[in-house]
């Protein structure tokens, strides 16, 4: 009990230090837009053609980070598979899903996939993009795992999609290196802002990310379910 109390006091104290530091040095909302952020807001549309500035930061200005981020997710899916491989769990009796659940999920599933694709296709125009879209798609699969006993996506196909999307992403980056001497450069025409077909390679990257994140998250859920 005393240990818990000390732990509580210590963590509260650390929180208090952080709070007072943050409160004094970075008052809420009173920072001007400056540095690189000001550049992105002013020239973002001119340079990259996407009206969603966060998207152009994620995919191009800081696109190298996003490549790393995709790698981290890939790493998690791989590591999870490696660690859980060969684990067997005794089959326990699971309750049968009800008829309502089975019917509803069957009809909801394509809609969820459609919604996910909508999000990643419109990543450069609206909030969202490849990562949330991938997670939405994985949610659809998760729903099916729970509601349909017999539903199992092919692990072979998942792995192939994931790996193919990953290599494609690197190839898009290398295309920039080959055509404009800079990795991940926006080498496609920018088009007219606020159209679906605009912003150069941003939609391409987001479609790749959508597929990749979707298959990776589904793979993670599948491994956790089966282990």
């Amino acid at each position: 009990m005393i240990r818990r109390l000390i732990a509580l006091l210590v963590s509260l104290y650390l929180g208090y230090i952080l709070y007072s530091f943050v409160y004094v040095h970075f008052p809420f909302g009173e920072r001007p837009l400056r540095g690189v952020a000001a550049h992105y807001v002013e020239n973002g549309i001119k340079e990259e053609g996407a009206t969603n500035i966060v998207t152009s930061i994620v995919t191009l200005y800081r696109g190298f980070d996003t490549l790393g981020e995709v790698t981290v997710l890939f790493l998690a899916a791989t590591g999870l598979g490696l660690i859980l491989a060969g684990m067997k769990r005794e089959e326990e009796e699971k309750p049968e899903p009800t008829l309502i659940m089975e019917t509803v999920t069957k009809h909801l599933f394509p809609l969820v996939l459609l919604f996910g694709s909508y999000i990643f296709i419109h990543g450069h125009l609206t909030p969202g993009g490849g990562f949330p879209a991938g997670v939405v798609i994985a949610t659809g699969y998760f729903m099916m795992f729970i509601a349909q006993r017999s539903f199992t996506p092919s692990e072979y196909l998942l792995s192939a999609t994931e790996s193919f999307a990953g290599t494609l992403y690197v190839i898009v980056g290398l295309l920039g290196l080959a055509l404009a001497f800079s990795f991940l450069d926006n080498v496609m025409p920018l088009g007219i802002p606020n159209r679906v077909f605009s912003a150069g390679i941003i939609p391409v990257i987001y479609i790749i990310i959508g597929f990749k994140v979707g298959s990776e998250m589904t793979g993670i859920l599948l491994h956790l379910k089966e282990a």
């Binding site: 540095g35 690189v36 191009l60 200005y61 696109g63 190298f64 990795f183 991940l184 450069d185």
Partner: peptide
């Protein structure tokens, strides 16, 4: 070595 065709500090 730049990425995204822009000079630092704008791009990575």
């Amino acid at each position: 070595i730049t990425t995204a065709g822009l000079k630092p500090p704008i791009a990575i």
